[in-house]
Amino acid sequence: MTVLQTVAGGLVGTVVLTSVLRAATELHLTRIDLPFLLGTAVTADRTRAKALGYALHLLFGELFALVYLALFAAVGRHDWWLGALFGAGHGVFAGTALINVLLPLVHPRMGNDVSDATEVALMEAPGFLGRNYGPQTATVGLAAHVLFGVTVALFLGPG
């Protein structure tokens, strides 16, 4: 259970998570696009936003993987099902506090309940559990985060 393994797990886990969300979009289940959301916090250029967004998303994935590592170390095991449990918790946190509350607060182009459309260009806010992006967003997001957690745990070797 090393940092290097965690970094590798975080990288692959984020790729899995992004792919699942992208596939869900292609299947018309959701409009969530995490790289676009993250990238537009930094730049108004669409193309650059997507590229930067992917880089930021990978970076955040690594940070979360390191948090997982700390949690695995704290409980003294890193079974795949524990990774799935952490992933589920991560998914709930992301769908409720992270993208619903924190992201609109720090995103310079995202609206909130008191914004109107006459002041600054506004990104559509995700809403509770991301449901503004489609009613299936919460389910898809939860599944993607569970897979992230399982992937990180598997990269750490047998629990």
């Binding site: 409009r31 969530i32 696009d33 959301l37 006459t118 002041e119 260009a121 506004l122 990104m123 992006y133």
Partner: peptide
Amino acid sequence: GAFGEPLVLPTAAD
């Protein structure tokens, strides 16, 4: 319009 991504809601000036 937004397709597979969040909506962008522009200002009057934009």
